[in-house]
Amino acid sequence: MITESDKRWGAVGHVLMAVLAFLAVAPFVLLVIGSFTEEGAAIRNGYSYFPESWSVDAYRYILEQWTTIGRSYLVTIFVTATGTVVSVVISSMLAYVLSCKELPGRSVILFALTFTMLFNGGLTATYIVYTQVFHIKNTIFGLLLPGLLMNAYSVMMFRNYFETTIPGALLEAAKIDGAKHTAIFFKIVVPLSLPMVATVGLTVALMYWNDWQNGLYYLSANSKLQSIQTLLNNMNENVKYLQQNNVGSAFTAADMPSTTIRMAIAVVGIMPILLLYPFFQKWFVAGMMSGAVKE
């Protein structure tokens, strides 16, 4: 049943997708090669896929700084893991509650949730609440709590999934058998929702992995809890700052890690994502696919 026209269009699809796939991957290759390019070669010829001379100096620098960078790694991993687990648990529970249509006060919670998508008190007020009421400054909670732990979008995604994918009859039957809500949730709903758990979990995990702002606000520069992204961002910001402010000649960008080194750190920062990518992208795709089949 495959026609000539199908074949032609299939070929067009192949070409387009191949180009896009190349565009998606090529920059990362350049980044990796850039981090292995010898500083002088980069200055003379720019970053290129075929550098004139190679060097592992940038990585030697990283090894020298490993106490700092390794520690940041551990912090990032810990925060990402903890944050993701907690986030998935509490948002899926709320989503389950919201999918229970007969619950009194459901619309109140729903509105309260939607409202948070529209208004926020701003950084200063959030900072005051967290530091003065909850005292999380310079603690690991400073990286975990503000802003990232739960958001309305994850809840909505879960709720959508629960309402559309899980057969109502199944839940009814369980209820008639006398199962409690907690039991229904953990024994029936969650096992049936693994693809969505994976999708939301991955989204949240990436938010934690890629976050640099909490580290900037809720940790002082003395802190040993800087995450890898905060470290990278700080380097970027310092270079930018020196570009825009004359803070005296004693100190110039010469003392900052060079672009090559920063590229190497970036490579180190994305390595885990790239290594784990084949595993988690499968789940992510599965969740997106099943969550979306709705109409």
Binding site: L123, T124, Y127, I128, T131, Q132, K137, L216, Y217, S220, A221, N222, N234, E237, N238, K240, Y241, N245, N246, V247, G248
Partner: peptide, 29 residues
Amino acid sequence: EAVSLFSLANIYALKASSQEKMDLMILFP
């Protein structure tokens, strides 16, 4: 307490508005 140069103004503003303990502060530049 070390404060990153690029976020000096912001960190001070946050500290001052939350009345976090702060006595001497460097202004640079």
